[in-house]
């Protein structure tokens, strides 16, 4: 990076930090900026004569009952002074720290706009690690436990994590096969014997090929060709000639055919074919232009949401 660019980067950082600090101090002095408040809810359960557990009043719960407290965040615009003074709402330190971390991580990522820097790299490393870990967790609790362990060891899983599960069907031995396939797949991580993972991968590839074949033939080939065959003479509800609908139907047909001709590379694009293909390119360009417009719209919405978080949830400016 050139010296002048480094200097301007330093200047940008200084301006950003000064403006940020002023806004923060002003906001914190006038509102509950950067604070998260919660309300508590008591849960208590008592065992009845049948051995079942029923909800009971938390105030009357004894040491033999099961009881706990859960907390829900209160949006700032719903938080009243009465709630605070009565003790109904209290500030949550863990969530307040979390809110600040969210804001700091957002700024860390945005800092990449000024240039690559350690803050961005740190945030990037965190998102990779936490996301991968999260996926493992969700895989375990949402799929592995109910759909595999629950079939192989139903009684154990029922007594452990899924009491609502029906364990009466007993062990379903057929599920040993996917379990073995998973073990074989993970062999790829081993220094030797990785070739065994080709078996589950082959299973994966075969099933995917079968799926894709069915899905694409039916929905994207047959149904689309069918949808492209439309009447080129349109009439209105009263049976009279509908000029706009007819024109649109003609354009739609010509555009579809010409764009398909462009993708037909077995014939040289010369003469009539060449001219048709060129027309096809024009329609494709209009398609790409529309896609670009929609893509921009999407990206800006994502940025707006992040800035709403910074200005609203964190700084309480809106």
């Amino acid at each position: 990076m050139s010296e002048s660019k480094q200097q301007s980067n330093g200047l940008i950082w200084a301006v950003v930090f000064i403006i940020g600090a002023i806004m923060l101090v002003w906001s914190m002095s006038t509102s509950r900026t950067g604070q998260v408040w919660v309300t508590a809810e008591q849960h208590a359960f008592v065992q009845n004569a049948d051995g079942d557990w029923a909800k009971t009043d938390a105030a009357s719960a004894t040491s033999n009952d099961i009881a706990w407290t859960s907390y829900s965040s209160v949006p700032d615009n719903e938080l009243t002074d009465e709630m605070i003074s009565s003790g109904d709402a209290k500030m949550s330190w863990s969530r307040t720290i979390g809110l600040w971390l969210s804001a700091i991580f957002t700024l860390f990522i945005l800092s990449f706009l000024v240039g690559d820097n350690p803050a961005y790299k740190f945030a990037e490393a965190m998102v990779v690690g936490t996301s991968a870990g999260y996926v493992m967790v969700i895989g375990l609790w949402d799929v592995f436990v109910p759909n595999l362990l629950g079939k192989l060891f139903p009684v154990m899983v029922q007594n452990w994590a899924l009491p609502g599960m029906d364990a009466s069907v007993g062990t379903q031995l057929l599920y040993i096969i996917p379990a073995i396939l998973i073990v074989m797949l993970l062999m790829q991580l081993m220094p030797a014997g990785g070739w065994i993972s080709r078996w589950p991968i082959a299973f994966f590839i075969g099933i995917t090929a079968g799926y894709r074949m069915i899905g694409y033939v039916e929905a994207d080939l047959v149904a689309q060709i069918k949808a492209a065959i439309i009447p080129l003479y349109e009439t209105g509800a009263d049976g009279t000639f509908a000029i706009w609908d007819t024109m649109n139907a003609c354009i739609l047909t010509i555009a579809t055919l010409s764009a398909m001709v462009y993708f037909f590379f077995s014939i040289e694009h010369k003469g009539f074919v060449g001219k048709t293909a060129r027309l096809g390119i024009w329609f494709l360009m209009i398609t790409f232009g529309a896609s670009f417009g929609y893509t921009v719209m999407g990206r800006i919405a994502l940025l707006a949401q992040r800035l709403e978080f910074l200005f609203g949830d964190w700084l309480h400016l809106i």
């Binding site: 971390l101 990522i109 940025l303």
Partner: peptide, 16 residues
């Protein structure tokens, strides 16, 4: 809430 949401959503927001 405090790590995955801000980090992943800001990554995509940068594309604007």
């Amino acid at each position: 809430q405090h790590m995955i949401v801000p980090l992943t959503s800001t990554m995509f927001a940068m594309l604007a």
